[in-house]
Simulated assay, not measured.
Amino acid sequence: MDNRIQTDLRSRPLMGIGTPAVGGHLYGLRSIGEEFQMDVPVSRLRTADGKFFTIRPPDVTERDRVQEERNAFAMAANAILEEEKARVARELHDDLAQSLTALKMDTIWVRDNAAIAPEAAVAKLTNMLETLDRTIGATRRIAADLRPLLLDDLGLVPAIEWLVGNFTQRCGVACKLSVDEELELQEPYATAVFRIVQESLANVAKHAGASEVAVVIDKVPRAVMLTVRDNGCGFVTAVPRKPQSLGLMGLRERAQLLGGSIAINSALGHGTLVEMYIPLPQSGVPE
């Protein structure tokens, strides 16, 4: 890039001696002669000693930190996605493909032996039905991992009630849910709220060491408010997170994708509070 720069002097008129006229910007010239605006505000200042230009470079430390964090999250999330694809491929091969192969072989056997060994054919068919039941169960499990079927079949509230109940049963942690039974959200908001609750409870199970969790979902005018509070060990929010720690960053990304925001309050020995705000258009779907 050419190191020459020029300033935009077509900002508002000077307001008097010693008064800056804010609004100018620095412009750079690329090596090909193309002009571009630089993100550095410029002010003009006229004093008794003459006219000066002042430059106020912004502090981009926080912006760069957030960008680096997002880049790290994107790379890690992509790696996780590839791992998930590999897991699904293994399950399809190990569970479904092998079961279907066994069923095909048993079907051929029954075709060839039903007339000469009817009792053995009946026993074989009984085993085949058991294999079919296991195959159906494996198919439903794989599908549920990819997409919460309860969300499609029963709606958001029953799906979250199941999620909370399953969390308590699996982790032995009491979890209280407060939600309007009439709450209905269209996509992509229903899936986002479900996944946010799911990821929040997963974070509690992995890191909090809590004995109680409270989940509250409120629908306010044109928005959904979601809070998850636990009485676990807590953590220092100012300490940088480990690169492989994606839970809280994942929550932020989900909220930001829908134009929302998230606040995380925690302290050692005092548990963690996650508060999330997701705006809704009037129709409940993206505008």
Rank of each mutant, 00 (worst) to 15 (best):
M1R: 10
D2R: 05
T7H: 02
T7S: 06
L9E: 09
L9C: 09
R10L: 11
L14T: 05
L14M: 12
M15S: 13
G16E: 06
P20G: 05
A21E: 01
V22I: 15
G24D: 11
L29D: 05
F36L: 11
F36Q: 13
D39R: 12
R46N: 12
T47Q: 10
T47S: 15
A48H: 13
I55W: 02
I55T: 09
I55M: 14
D59K: 06
E62D: 14
D64S: 12
V66R: 13
V66G: 11
M75E: 12
A76Y: 09
L81M: 06
E83P: 04
R87L: 08
V88E: 06
D94T: 00
D94R: 03
D95Y: 04
Q98P: 08
K104P: 02
M105L: 11
V110H: 00
I116S: 10
I116G: 04
E119R: 01
A120C: 05
A120Q: 07
V122I: 13
K124R: 08
T126G: 07
N127R: 03
E130G: 01
D133T: 03
R134A: 09
T135A: 10
I136L: 13
I136T: 02
G137F: 00
R140N: 06
R141E: 12
I142P: 02
D153Q: 05
L154W: 04
L156D: 07
V157P: 01
V164I: 15
G165P: 08
R170F: 10
R170L: 11
C171N: 07
A174G: 04
K176M: 08
K176V: 01
K176F: 02
S178T: 11
D180Y: 08
E181H: 09
E184Y: 09
R195Q: 12
I196G: 01
Q198A: 07
Q198C: 05
E199C: 04
A202S: 15
N203L: 05
A208Q: 10
G209W: 00
E212T: 00
V216A: 14
V216W: 07
D218N: 14
K219D: 08
R222D: 14
A223G: 09
T227Y: 04
V228I: 15
V236S: 09
A238W: 09
P240G: 03
R241E: 12
K242D: 15
K242E: 15
Q244N: 13
L246D: 02
M249R: 14
L251T: 02
L251M: 01
L257Y: 08
G259Q: 00
I262R: 04
I264W: 01
A267Y: 05
H270V: 03
H270I: 01
T272C: 15
L273G: 09
P286A: 13
E287N: 12
